[in-house]
C-alpha cells in the first residue's frame, strides 16, 4: 500500500496504518532527535510527543502528500520545545555500541565518530536542528526554513555556522585556532 493510502486510512482512525507510517520513519526521527537534544531519554520523549501530536491532529492534515514533512517538523519542534522548557544542560548522548562502523580502520572511524559527536555537542540546539533536518533527514533548505519557522536566509546562515564549526572541530582541515560554539549556549 502506498504512503498516501496509509495516510488517508490513518486520518480515518486506522491505527495500524499509522503504525506502518511510524515504522517507515521512526529510526531516522529518533536519530535526528538524539542529534538535536543530546539525551536519549529526552529524544525518546520528543519523538513520542511529536508522534502523539501527529496521531491526534492527523484528521486536520489538509494535504496527505506532505505527511513526511509534517511529521519531521512536529518531531523537530518537539525537540526544541522540550529543550526550551527544561532550560538545563542535558545528559550527553552516548554513542550506541550497536553501530560500530565496518570500516577497515576501526580506531580511526571511531575517532571520527567521537569528533563529530563532540563537535555537534558544542553547537547551539537551533544549529543542530538545521544540521539534523538538512543532512540527516535530507530536507532541502527551504523546507528546513519552513519547518523551523525561520527565513531561508536564517536557515542558510545557521547551516553556515554549523558547518564551519563542524569542519574545524572534526579536523578535516586542521586549523591553528579551533572554532568555539557559534551562536551562544546550550538551552
Amino acid at each position: 500500500m502506498d504512503q498516501r493510502a496509509l495516510v488517508e486510512r490513518a486520518r480515518q482512525g486506522d491505527h495500524e496504518a499509522f503504525a506502518a507510517l511510524v515504522d517507515a520513519s521512526l529510526a531516522r526521527l529518533d536519530a535526528a532527535a538524539r542529534l538535536i537534544v543530546r539525551d536519549p531519554e529526552l529524544a525518546r520523549d520528543a519523538v513520542q510527543d511529536g508522534l502523539i501530536r501527529a496521531w491526534r491532529d492527523l484528521p486536520g492534515l489538509r494535504d496527505p502528500e506532505r505527511f513526511d514533512a509534517w511529521l519531521r517538523r512536529l518531531v523537530v519542534n518537539s525537540c526544541l520545545d522540550l529543550l526550551r522548557r527544561r532550560r538545563r544542560r542535558v545528559r550527553e548522548v552516548e554513542l550506541s555500541p550497536l553501530h560500530i562502523p565496518s570500516a577497515p580502520d576501526q580506531s580511526s572511524a571511531l575517532a571520527d565518530r567521537e569528533e563529530i559527536d563532540q563537535a555537534l555537542r558544542r553547537l547551539d540546539p537551533n544549529h543542530r536542528a538545521v544540521v539534523a533536518l538538512h543532512y540527516l533527514l535530507g530536507m532541502p533548505l527551504h523546507e528546513v526554513a519552513a519547518s523551523l519557522r525561520i527565513p531561508i536566509g536564517t536557515a542558510k546562515s545557521r547551516l553556515h555556522y554549523a558547518i564551519s564549526a563542524l569542519r574545524v572541530n572534526v579536523d578535516v582541515e586542521p586549523s591553528p585556532t579551533p572554532l568555539q560554539v557559534p551562536g551562544g549556549t546550550v538551552a
Binding site: V22, S96, L98
Partner: peptide
C-alpha cells in the same frame, strides 16, 4: 556529512517503538 551522521546516529528501530504506539493508541 550525511553518511557520517548516519554512521553516528542512525540505528535500527528504537526499542521504545511498542510503548510509543501503545501511547498513540
Amino acid at each position: 556529512l550525511p553518511a557520517l551522521l548516519e554512521d553516528v546516529y542512525l540505528g535500527s528501530t528504537p526499542s521504545y517503538r511498542h510503548d510509543l504506539l501503545a501511547a498513540t493508541g
